[in-house]
Nucleic acid binder design. Structure first.
Length: 318
DNA sequence: AAGCGTCTCAACCGCGAGCAC
DNA sequence: TGTGCTCGCGGTTGAGACGCT
């Protein structure tokens, strides 16, 4: 459902202050603002959001720009209703993760945490409430419970495919960020994703993102950096299974202190770019979903250990 | 057609974490 | 160590769409 733009000065009093340097706009975004933000992001990629707001000529706070980009403008966003499979996956992931919407969104291609949160609160929550089996986790506690989401209707391959899609989608910003920061560098080699047989299932929507290379999102100085298991045969990168955030960094890499969030402007929007690449080139670096690697690895991993009936979890960190 | 209640979802708010100085 | 800045997250709000009477 698309909203109309705010009527002038009704619910958006700051509209009248659009020319006031100290007054920031609030409320719905106009198409012009969207254009500004979109073109800025396409040209420059993600950096410090307050700089984005300033440099793009927007009378918005950086936070608002970030939200708008992430939830609406990002080219890899999928639009439209949730498919039954997505729904099932959401239910299941929620049963594991609780209200960790960003974690759930990381596993759904082209979906945002906000979108999933809204969907849950408006649709699933109600449905589960009305059904005979109440929500397993309405309280938000990540208490592991399995088998209530009907996920058994998904076969293993379907689930894996969904997660693969998720990997490409959720790591979009990394590719964007890096390619921007490395303006002087060649575009990341995304041949793995784009030219090497990953096919349409990898990219839900063909992107029209001209200058920004992204694919699997795991880039290193030699083209890509991947963490997780490659499954399937031939072609090298035919299927990429993203690691769950619970992946144990120490176990996966050769170093436990080289992990860096490359989408983090504090780390990546400066001349360290090359250093990041070289420091973390293939073999040691693990980049996954904007630095969420640290996110409560302990408890999520514990939780995941308890979940045995969910096929796609088989490929989680060992 | 009008009124009203419900639903959806974009956007805001507040908080905590990480980082630089 | 303290302070300030920025980011990211989850919770909440509220306008508009929708459906029912």
């Amino acid at each position: 459902m698309m909203r109309k733009l705010d009527p002038p000065a009704k619910n958006n009093p700051t509209n009248n202050n659009i020319n006031g340097a100290s007054k920031l706009r609030k409320g719905l975004w106009s198409p012009e603002e969207d254009d500004k933000l979109m073109s800025y992001m396409l040209r420059n990629g993600q950096g410090c959001w307050s700089d984005v707001a300033r440099n793009a000529g927007l009378q918005r706070c950086g936070k608002s720009c970030r939200l708008r980009w992430i939830n609406y403008l990002r080219p890899d966003l999928k639009r439209g209703a949730f498919s039954p499979k997505e729904e099932e996956l959401i239910i299941h992931l929620h049963s594991i993760l609780g209200n960790r919407w960003s974690q759930i969104a990381a596993r759904l291609p082209g979906r945002t945490d906000n979108e999933i949160k809204n969907f849950w609160n408006s649709t699933i929550k109600k449905r589960l409430k009305n059904s005979s089996s109440p929500s397993p986790n309405d309280s938000g506690s990540p208490e592991p419970k399995v088998g209530m989401g009907g996920l058994e209707t998904l076969n293993e391959q379907e689930i894996k495919t969904m997660c693969i899609d998720s990997a490409s989608s959720s790591s979009f910003m990394q590719g964007l960020s890096i390619s921007n920061q490395y303006d002087l560098l060649p575009l990341p080699d995304v041949s793995c994703g784009m030219n090497n047989g990953l096919g349409t299932s990898y990219f839900h929507e063909p992107t029209s993102f001209p200058q920004v290379g992204f694919g699997n999102g795991y880039y290193g100085s030699h083209g890509m950096m991947m963490e997780g298991d490659l499954v399937g045969g031939g072609g090298g990168c035919e299927l990429f299974v993203p690691p769950l955030e619970s992946t144990n960094i120490e176990e996966s890499g050769t170093s436990n202190n080289t992990t860096r969030n490359i989408s983090d402007p504090h780390h990546s929007s400066n001349n360290d770019a090359n250093k990041i690449n070289s420091d973390n080139a293939v073999g040691s670096g693990i980049y996954w979903q904007g630095g969420n690697m640290k996110m409560e690895e302990w408890d999520f991993e514990d939780l995941m250990k308890d979940v045995t009936s969910f096929p796609f979890l088989d490929f989680q960190a060992e």
